Amino acid sequence: MLILFIIPLFFISSQSISHEIHKHQTLRVLTWEGYVTDADVLEVNKLLEESGYHYKVEIILPYAQGAEQMFDLIRAKQCDVAFLTLFFIKMQKERTAKLLQEINTNSPRLSNYKHIYPNLTGLEMGMNSLNQPLYIPWGGGIYGFYINKDKVPDDKIPTSINALWEDEWHRKFSLNQSQQWYNLGLAFMSQGLSPFYMYEAIVEGDRNKVRELSKPNSMLQHRLSELYLSAGGFWKTSPEFNNNLLIISSWGPEIHAENAKGANWQLIDFDEGHMAWLDTINFVKGLEGEKLEAAEIFANYFIGKQVQSRVANELSMVPVSKLAPINPLLGGAQEIFKENMFVPPYNYSSYELMKKMTDKASLAVEHSKKNP
């Protein structure tokens, strides 16, 4: 009788432990701060439970910080789902792309995928060698310039990027300092060229063109240094607002916050267009079975109407879904996002050249401060 009594207890205990382990499996998500809220986590966990999946979302901390950090975490198998910026995928000889798996866009669990603007799907820098997508579009934005409508009348708002070099706007606009390729892009655009002209020349293997562009005394360097000398301020993380600046460069959310306080900043719709970025949802290689299905349910929620509306209304970004309202400050995805204006997957050579040129422009600013 003793043996018969012990065996059932052991059996029940094993089942209980197994159930607890199964119940607490996690779907680890690497995301930028603000993209996934606590309310989102609760909602997705509820969806997973109702659908019979024994997974719960776990947000990786610290949040996403950049291409290098995200690559390191993915390579170390510390996350299952990531919110990569599109051009990160094929940076550094496509090393991150090799760690991602293709998206089955026809999965029944991705029912909201069909509502994504078609100009955002199938972008070459997010496809693998078999032309399968390694990303699901989620939300994006631009390196935009916003003008203070309370101080500048409509007929004085500039229409061309070239205005940033004109005396009228001298010291009255700001530039981002930490992601220097955007400012180099402005210099190219002011000459009627692609903002990614340097990168394109490197990819084409045109060494003579690259050499001419990057000479210390080149027209491009002169143009870039002039832009830096004309700027009234530089910011690294988020733009600063003061009474001297009539034009603020921004990723968008800060402008939304200022306008919510009663300000009246409006995007300048430059004739040359806007350099754009797109943040995406990606699945790390190795996802399969129920875990993959749980990841698809997570992704589907984030491209659904509720979250996509928050992308437009609270994050001041451009939503990718046709179900969401158009961001009144930026406009719609079809107008804002043009394939040739997406930041490309810069390589090491591109970064080094751009840093060298923008460092020279920054030195010119420091010199001017010492010798006004």
Rank of each mutant, 00 (worst) to 15 (best):
F196I: 08
S160A: 11
A312G: 02
T105H: 04
V29R: 04
S214T: 15
Q179L: 13
V29W: 02
I281E: 01
K305D: 05
R211H: 14
T159H: 11
V320Q: 03
E272I: 07
D206G: 07
L224W: 13
Y35C: 07
F234R: 08
N242C: 09
N45G: 04
L130Q: 15
A299G: 06
E212H: 10
G331P: 10
P158S: 05
L267Q: 04
Q15L: 12
Y301S: 09
S225M: 09
E58M: 08
T37M: 14
S238H: 13
T237H: 09
H22G: 10
D38W: 00
K209A: 13
Q69S: 14
W235T: 05
I303G: 04
G144K: 07
Q101D: 01
N217V: 02
K114Q: 14
L213I: 07
R223V: 01
A64Q: 12
N300E: 11
E43F: 05
V320C: 09
Y197K: 09
N282L: 04
S107T: 08
D40N: 15
E49K: 14
N217Y: 12
M357Y: 10
F342M: 06
H54C: 07
E49Q: 14
P319S: 07
I21S: 06
V44L: 13
L224I: 05
H54P: 09
F298P: 03
Y35P: 06
I12A: 12
Q334V: 13
E296T: 01
F337T: 04
E366R: 15
I336T: 08
E49W: 06
E212P: 01
Q25S: 13
L329I: 14
Q191R: 10
N104T: 03
Y351T: 10
K360N: 15
V318A: 00
N327D: 06
T31M: 10
H19C: 05
L193Q: 12
F11S: 14
E226P: 02
D155A: 10
Y228N: 03
N264S: 10
Q78V: 08
L193H: 10
T26P: 01
S129K: 15
E94H: 11
R171V: 02
I21A: 06
A67G: 05
V44R: 05
G286Q: 02
A276D: 00
K305G: 06
G273Y: 05
I202W: 03
W277V: 03
S368D: 13
T85I: 13
A295E: 09
L73M: 12
L229D: 04
V29P: 00
E94R: 13
F241E: 09
K355H: 09
V36R: 10
S160W: 03
N45M: 08
N183T: 05
